[in-house]
Amino acid sequence: MDPRSEVLLRQAGLFTGDLLLAGLPADDLLAELPRAWGWSWHAGEHQHLLARFGERCSFDVQAPPAAFDSAVLFLPKSRELTDYLLQALASRLAGKPLYLVGEKRAGIERAARQLAAFGKPRKLDSARHCQLWRVDVLDAPDTPVLNDLARHFTLELSDGPLQVTSLPGVFSHGRLDLGSALLLEHLDGLPAGPLLDFGCGAGVIGAALKRRYPASPVILLDVDAFALASSRLTLAANRLEAQSIAADSIHAAPVGLAAIVSNPPFHQGVHTDYQASETLLRHAREHLATNGELRLVANSFLRYPPLIERHLGHCQTLASGQGFSLYRAAIRQ
């Protein structure tokens, strides 16, 4: 059981009515709270919950429409996303309690101050290096319009300006990160055929690929519902079309890809996590066509070249700069 869930269960007597659990972990919490519903924006966790609890858990950037007597937000990493989620929940809870739970090292005490916009926050419990806070919503705010919270910026690329839209919580919200900037400079010469942007974020790489290779189908894959929503907005802003897949690993991608292009994540919340990237490198060959290739940008200190050599063959460093390296490996018969 996740320690945040354990803290909630210490106060289980508070949750006797219809309860919404927002951002819940993929554990047994829904089994322990039979009147609870889950709202997830993490595709991997949602799949685990869906397999066990069926329609009691939704995957979306919007809260499920059903009425509830209280809600718990599991603290996300992003302050902007926390703001949006708290407002979205509080808008449905006039005169009702809203709870916030999170790890101390994730900044739960700082985040609890954000509850003051809706009433007087109270700390209810502290255990397992986590805290549980409550606010009784006095004046429900207006329901936030997610797209109104988007940040828009323009990238001046060699083939013209690219419009980018990012939503709260998306990696490198409102700006181009250094790794993606390096990757954008080295998208030439990809083989013809389906192209996958793995860990698409706001869709910068995927949109650039589709514009540069209009005859090639482009697929954007990400674990985060807010990232996929952002990527669709980015594509629409540039009048481009691509397929999107919500998944937490390369296993959900199609086979026969001409190329996998990625600036893969290695952080999950406050924890460092390389699993998605390492799974990508171990199984990329299964999804690439003969003569297909991988192009991956990463922090130079990450020891990806040995993994690439082991699973894909010769690893070429195409470029390095500002702490990042761009690697290429091609599949040969």
Rank of each mutant, 00 (worst) to 15 (best):
L81R: 02
L73Q: 05
I108C: 01
R79H: 14
E80Y: 15
E80F: 10
A88V: 04
G95W: 07
K104E: 14
L73F: 09
I108F: 00
A112E: 02
D83K: 06
P76M: 01
L81N: 02
L73S: 10
A88S: 11
D69Q: 13
A117F: 10
P97M: 08
Y99C: 06
Y99D: 11
A94R: 14
E80D: 14
R79W: 15
A90E: 03
R92K: 15
V101L: 07
L93G: 08
F74R: 04
L89P: 04
A117Y: 05
V72H: 02
L85I: 07
T82D: 03
L93R: 04
K96I: 08
P76N: 06
K77R: 12
S91D: 11
E109F: 14
G107Y: 06
Q87F: 08
A94W: 09
S78G: 12
Q87P: 04
K96G: 04
S91G: 08
A71M: 07
A106R: 00
G107Q: 13
L85T: 02
L73D: 01
Q114I: 03
A112C: 09
K104N: 11
A106Q: 11
K77T: 15
S70M: 09
G107I: 14
G95D: 13
Y99A: 11
K77C: 03
R113E: 14
L81A: 03
T82W: 10
L75I: 06
A116E: 07
A106W: 01
E109L: 15
L98R: 06
A111E: 07
L75P: 02
L85E: 12
D69W: 05
F74P: 00
K77F: 01
A88H: 03
P76T: 10
L75Y: 01
D83S: 15
